[in-house]
């Protein structure tokens, strides 16, 4: 079976700094992969390269065999890859429902003409899909509230719902547990597991080792832009290089 996402010898240079240095890895269909590494290891940069926010300096990224590096973020998104952001970027002055609908309208599309005359069932489809996404994260109660007025933890779920409304095949979560307490993190972990078992391939960057170790099937470890490990959690836990770079030598 070919991999869903192939990162092929990809590098990204910012001035003199190699933020991502010749990284090669894959994500298989229906996998749940974690990406970890110390601060500044290049995790978010790698996500930005995959989602098209930052162009690659060299190498190639392929999605289902098709080259996606060099495409615009909106084009990559429309192929079925959706992402969330590390620093929580909801649309603050829009309602919760309207936030989610942007993901749905991005995927389903509505032309000005369809908006004016109605007629086509686009609006109905977008409404239904947005509602379903809100149901998945249990935010339907807040549908008409402004996103800015939601509690921090709920905004995290809102951002995930907006990504889900795009009906993605590959969901990329950038530090979903950042800023959450232990019980919220545990809740999020089981939510991500459910998403994964519903058929979505998930790739997540995370600082919270407990979360990554408990739910991921495979873990990719970056340090200073280089990949230093790529294996099951139990193997990564034993890897000397990982322990030195990330968990501290004295362990």
């Amino acid at each position: 079976m070919t991999a869903m996402l192939e990162v092929d010898n990809v590098s990204r240079r910012f001035g003199g700094l190699m933020a991502v240095d010749s990284v090669t890895t894959t994500v298989g269909e229906r996998e749940l992969v974690g990406l970890i590494g110390p601060n500044g290891a290049g995790k978010t940069t790698l996500f930005n390269l995959i989602s098209g926010f930052t162009p690659v300096s060299s190498g190639e990224i392929r999605y289902r065999g098709e080259k996606i590096s060099g495409l615009k973020p909106s084009v990559i998104a429309s192929k079925g890859i959706s992402r969330t952001f590390q620093n929580l970027r909801v649309f603050p002055n829009m309602t919760v429902f309207d936030n989610v609908s942007v993901g749905a309208v991005g995927a389903i599309g509505q032309t000005p003409w369809q908006a004016i005359v109605g007629g086509s069932n686009r609006a109905q489809q977008i409404s239904e899909r947005s509602w379903e996404a809100l149901e998945k994260v249990q935010l339907t109660r807040y549908a008409n509230d402004l996103a800015a007025n939601l509690a921090y933890g709920k905004r995290k779920y809102l951002e995930i719902a907006r990504a889900l409304a795009m009906n993605p095949d590959l969901l990329i979560l950038d530090e979903p547990a950042a800023g959450l307490n232990d019980s919220e993190t545990a809740e999020l972990a089981s939510f991500i597991k459910d998403l994964h078992s519903s058929g979505i391939t998930v790739m997540l960057v995370e600082h919270d080792m407990g979360l990554v170790m408990s739910i991921c099937e495979r873990i990719v470890v970056l340090a200073s832009g280089k990949k230093i490990a790529d294996a099951e959690p139990s193997v990564v836990r034993q890897n000397r290089e990982v322990l030195e770079a990330y968990l501290g030598v004295d362990e």
């Binding site: 909106s74 942007v102 908006a115 005359v117 907006r162």
Partner: peptide, 30 residues
């Protein structure tokens, strides 16, 4: 006509440009 355009999902897509156009881009919005 402008009411129909702005009070629709097309209008929501326009609002998302105002809120955070980079993020809108990641949602598949051109």
């Amino acid at each position: 006509v402008i009411h129909r355009l702005s009070h629709s999902y097309y209008g929501n897509a326009l609002r998302s440009l105002r809120e955070d156009d980079q993020c809108a881009d990641a949602m598949g919005i051109n």
